[in-house]
Simulated scan of single mutants.
Amino acid sequence: MVATTILLMFMGFYALYSSSKRAVLNQSKFDIWLQEKYSPLKATGLLLITIALGVAILHKGFASGIFYWFIILMTLGSLIVLVSPLRVFNYKAIATTLICIVFIENFLI
């Protein structure tokens, strides 16, 4: 459930970040495609973040889930804003990180 919440939050925040006009955006094929889909991108990002909030509340409880959601939102938000202009995000890096999170969640904790 942690990996699901993190993945939904990452996708939602990155969609909102990509729809910003002031952000320094990458020129990869995926980012160009996201920039072309400007109008539904904000609604999709907000929907994904709201679903992540629901998953966090279901997994951790009401108050703990909201607090947990805010921690993930602040962490991923600052990570995306700081690292995205460096062009570090690609599907290989994101997939590797998600696989590591799922491994840690299921086998070590």
Rank of each mutant, 00 (worst) to 15 (best):
A3E: 08
K42S: 11
P40W: 01
H59P: 00
I94Q: 14
F13D: 12
A95V: 05
G54C: 05
A3H: 05
A43M: 09
L25T: 09
W69V: 05
L7R: 06
I94H: 09
M1P: 12
A15S: 11
F89W: 15
V83P: 00
L73D: 12
I94E: 15
K60F: 14
P40N: 03
V55Q: 05
Q27C: 07
R87T: 04
Y91T: 15
V2P: 03
L76A: 06
E105P: 13
Y91M: 10
Y17K: 02
F10E: 13
V81E: 14
F89H: 05
T50M: 01
H59K: 12
L53Y: 13
V2E: 07
I80Y: 08
L41K: 06
I99N: 07
L16V: 13
L53N: 05
V81A: 12
S20E: 12
L34K: 03
G77K: 09
S64E: 10
Q27S: 06
L48F: 07
L25I: 08
L48C: 09
I51R: 02
I32G: 01
K92N: 08
A56W: 02
G65L: 02
I57K: 06
Y38I: 08
C100A: 10
M1L: 09
A52P: 12
K37V: 14
G61S: 03
L8F: 09
L53C: 12
E105H: 11
I49V: 14
F30R: 06
G45R: 01
L79C: 04
S20V: 05
L48Q: 02
G65V: 04
A93V: 15
F10K: 08
S78Y: 10
I71F: 01
G45L: 01
Y14P: 00
S39A: 11
V88Q: 10
I71W: 01
S28D: 10
L73E: 12
V55G: 00
